[in-house]
Amino acid sequence: MSLISELTDREHVFDFLTPAASPVDVRHGPILYMEDVTVSFDGFRAIDELTLTINDGELRCIIGPNGAGKTTMMDIITGKTRPDTGSVWFGSRHNLLTMNEPDIASLGIGRKFQKPTVFEALTVFENLELAMAADKRVFPTLTAKLTGEHRERIDEVLEMTGLQELRWRTAGVLSHGQKQWLEIGMLLMQRPRLLLVDEPVAGMTEQEMERTAELLTSLAGKQSVVVVEHDMGFVRSLARTVTVLHQGSVLAEGSMDEVSKDPKVVEVYLGEGI
């Protein structure tokens, strides 16, 4: 197309008009792709040539004994820890190793910590408000106003997480389980493409666990979810693909039944009653 016809074409979209931070490109397969990633602390290899692929819309469970590198793996994906070698791609366009935490977060990766971290001095409502997808630069934040649409979105998440009654309570007074829910709620407010959920049911009652499993299952499809969990009952209830990590690399992958029959896995988990 010649320059003139380009200029006269009213429908033409110039390159400089397309947003710079383009959406995640998942046309060519997985949403998260880690290859040959290695991290060591003082010579100890926390992650050892780990290769992992998460497909778009997938719900993946990751299990592994203590020290298998589950948390470190999440640290790498969210930009908290830089690996020594290897590559990490989000979709086929974004190299996560070149980005910092806020960038990665605004790209659509949300993380729930092992220990529930909510802002204890703020109310449940405010916690969700801060998590809401919005322009998070300094001045827009200073002048930000809460619109009706925002309220609706917050109400929606409050309902999903069952925290409607507690919306004006400071987060510090919530029970452990409620904090877990609030944190999941904050993740949902971000409208992430990929959710990283670290031990979501620790300290929950049987009932709460069931609801969490329901919630996570309902999210899959729209969003990709990676769950790291110790509780085998909970993992079984999610009934999806399971990846077993051991000493920083993948030991086995497959359905829960396949994995639990794998002799290598049995050896690692011997006595832990998988």
Binding site: T78, E101, P102, F119, L122, L130, R137, M186
Partner: peptide
Amino acid sequence: RVSIATRDAEARTRFLGYR
């Protein structure tokens, strides 16, 4: 509120996408 969030849990605030 973001400031208070930073004060109490800096890492968490970062993961929410705030610089």
